[in-house]
Design a protein around this nucleic acid. Structure first.
Lengths: 178, 178
DNA sequence: TGGTACATGTAACATGTTACATGATTTG
DNA sequence: CAAATCATGTAACATGTTACATGTACCA
């Protein structure tokens, strides 16, 4: 649905090759939307056909050539349109909660190790986001819209993982000694 | 990946036809995992072939016949095994955050209507979950593992939507008068 | 007679995952 | 000399979405 738009956002920030886009989708934008390199290399020619991006082959010395994509005016228009279009709430997909409901039938002890593991994963992510928050926004969200948007994206990660850590703690209290 | 397991959980709670499963995936279990009827009717024969569920055609008076599926012992084993298997953290897929990063480039006003809309959606879900919490768990999570697991699943929905409402409020404060 | 609930499917397409495939350059 | 990084792809398969397709029974 919106991998195309996620790519447009990344290219609107700055032009990039498929390879560079993949690495951005492992960090930054990737905190909110994931994509593998296979998806990327399949999607980019489609975006080019649609006229939303342009491509240029850039020879490099000492490295393989790369094909650098940039967003076009038409791409920018399509992106602005998508920003305003209502998008349904993300389809929920919480396998941990499916497991918890499974544990309601098969016994809580089956799922305790998974809850502990998830707590650790979310706590790690939370620490990372808080560190970025300190490093990049230690003195507040800033005055310009750009900085505030980037701050808010980060902030959603903080709130998300905080609430999962809190849930795991509640769950462990309730289930560890049933 | 785990639609199969979500179906097993639902059938472990009690047997059902494809049609009934679809309606459960619109409520209860559906708060954590979504599936359309096409997915269901494609998946059930596969589960049967795998020996994880059994099927029985049940004639009904005044209604079309239905095919009722039930979990088998093998299915129950497979489910217990999955409950204990480490599952990667859910791939994040937050189109609203992609839009916010887009707004960092194209301007915050593009995304404000979407944020207001999402706030309303999450506030509605939150009210629904809190109502279920009052009605079904007004006097606490209960003493048995089954009740506690069901309570915790609900609780995760409450925390999730609470944190989104909070984020939307922060975002509207920061972006409404840039 | 028209809508909703019950009940089950097929076909085509879009998206996502896993495995396979190649090859140069840099770093330890 | 082995591993990591840069760089781009194909093929097969699994999963998810949208549209098409059919038919009964009940209620207003």
């Amino acid at each position: 649905m919106s991998l195309k738009h996620a790519i447009l956002v990344s290219l609107a920030e700055r032009p990039a090759s498929g390879y560079e886009l993949v690495s951005r989708f492992d960090r930054s934008i990737g905190y909110f939307w994931r994509a593998s390199h296979q998806q990327m290399y399949r999607e980019l020619p489609k975006l080019q056909t649609a006229g939303w991006v342009s491509a240029e082959d850039v020879p490099q010395s000492g490295k393989p050539d790369k094909r650098v994509y940039a967003i076009t005016d038409a791409g920018r228009d399509a992106l602005a349109k998508w920003l305003r279009a209502p998008v349904g709430p993300e389809p929920v997909r919480e396998s941990l909660m499916v497991k918890v409901r499974g544990a309601a039938v098969l016994g809580a002890d089956h799922v305790l190790p998974e809850i502990r593991r998830h707590r650790a994963l979310h706590a790690d992510k939370l620490a990372l986001f808080r560190q970025i928050e300190r490093e990049q926004f230690g003195d507040g969200a800033g005055d310009d819209a750009t900085g505030r948007c980037r701050y808010l994206a980060l902030r959603s990660g903080v709130l998300y993982h905080e609430s999962w850590v809190r849930w795991c703690d509640e769950a462990l209290v309730l289930l560890e000694r049933v």
